[in-house]
């Protein structure tokens, strides 16, 4: 049997079991009736010219319909309630960027640490994965958690979980993506909080030594983003001090609502920022002119991630 390594796995098993037993009983009821009727009313026992003329039975048919309606509504509401838990991540989860590529998974921690086809997370801590794809659609599937999420190019999708079982859990690609689709596998290692912290600290220590050797690549994502922010010329129009230039200031804006040109409100989340970089005219902030050029083709996915990490790090 498949291990249950998260709270969502536990909820899945309960609801799956309920639907399973309902289905099994319904199936047995239908098939017993069929077999019984076929034996009892076989031609050898029944005169074909003396069968009764039965049109139907409205009350019986209606009660089947109503009864079934009630049952499927229970399944629906129960499924929705569990699904909401899958959707809504708790406050301040550990965030990991995941980029799907033909045919590997690239994990990127907020401290800049990158792993291929391997992810390490602490047990009993909420972890939120932020997915993007470098090419076609993939799907990040963790059977032991009973979770999956499509990884779509040009769109951020997310998934959160809280692992409850130490050890290694397989990750598979569940959306067909070409030749090596079945080899696009990764391992998710669940370790204790202490082990996780040590694991990161050791790496950060090693990194600091390298930074001293002027290794720029290994800068944290927010640092990389800060560099890009200047390099790509963003500072010409946007400040991070609250001062308005040609474009809106960008400090402390992440995750907050903003009023748009047409008067509607919009959350400035990951997808909003990506869209503002790629299609700047799509959701203009009220009071600013559409002057920004597109960064389509200029910024890679991991660079967009870095810029977002930088914007997240800025406080008001």
């Amino acid at each position: 049997m498949l291990p249950q390594a998260s709270s969502s796995a536990h909820s899945f098993e309960i609801l799956f079991g309920v639907i399973f037993w309902f289905s099994l009983i319904s199936f047995l009821a239908v098939s017993t009736a069929i077999v019984f009727f076929v034996i009892k009313f076989h031609r050898t026992r029944r005169d074909p010219f003396k069968t009764p003329f039965i049109h139907g039975h409205t009350v019986l048919e209606t009660s089947v319909a109503v009864g079934l309606f009630v049952v499927v509504m229970i399944f629906f509401i129960w499924g929705w309630a569990d699904y909401k838990k899958i959707l809504n991540a708790p406050q301040d989860p550990l965030e990991i960027n995941v980029i799907g590529k033909q045919w590997l998974w690239e994990m990127e921690y907020s401290n800049g640490r990158k792993l291929i086809n391997e992810m390490v997370v602490p047990k009993d801590e909420p972890v939120k994965l932020l997915f993007s794809s470098a090419d076609v659609i993939h799907s990040f599937f963790i059977p032991n958690f009973r979770l999956k999420q499509d990884v779509v190019p040009g769109l951020y999708t997310t998934l959160w979980f809280q692992a409850s079982l130490l050890g290694e859990h397989p990750v598979l690609c569940a959306e067909y993506c070409g030749s090596a689709h079945s080899k696009m596998l990764a391992t998710l290692k669940v370790v204790s909080k202490e082990d996780y912290d040590t694991w990161q600290k050791q790496w950060e220590k090693a990194k600091t030594q390298k930074v001293e050797e002027a290794q720029e690549d290994a800068a944290s994502m927010a640092e990389q983003g800060k560099g890009l922010f200047t390099q790509k010329g963003c500072t010409a129009c946007h400040t991070v001090t609250g001062q308005k230039l040609i474009g809106p200031p960008l400090n402390g804006i992440f995750g907050k609502e903003v009023e748009l040109q047409d008067g509607s409100k919009h959350f400035r989340d990951e997808n909003y920022i990506r869209e503002s970089l790629m299609t700047p005219g799509a959701k203009m902030v009220k009071g600013f002119a559409p002057l920004m050029p597109t960064f389509q083709g200029t910024l890679s996915d991991s660079e967009v991630n870095a810029v977002i990490a930088y914007l997240k790090s800025l406080k008001e």
């Binding site: 969502s8 909820s11 899945f12 609801l15 799956f16 639907i19 399973f20 309902f22 289905s23 319904s26 199936f27 499927v72 399944f75 629906f76 129960w78 499924g79 929705w80 309630a81 569990d82 699904y83 838990k85 899958i86 799907s139 599937f141 059977p143 009973r146 979770l147 999956k148 569940a174 959306e175």
Partner: peptide
């Protein structure tokens, strides 16, 4: 038909989809 119920149920489909 009955196994369709599993797939129509949101939280259950998250695991079973594409399997």
């Amino acid at each position: 038909g009955l196994t369709g119920l599993f797939l129509a149920t949101l939280s259950v489909d998250v695991h079973l989809h594409d399997t």
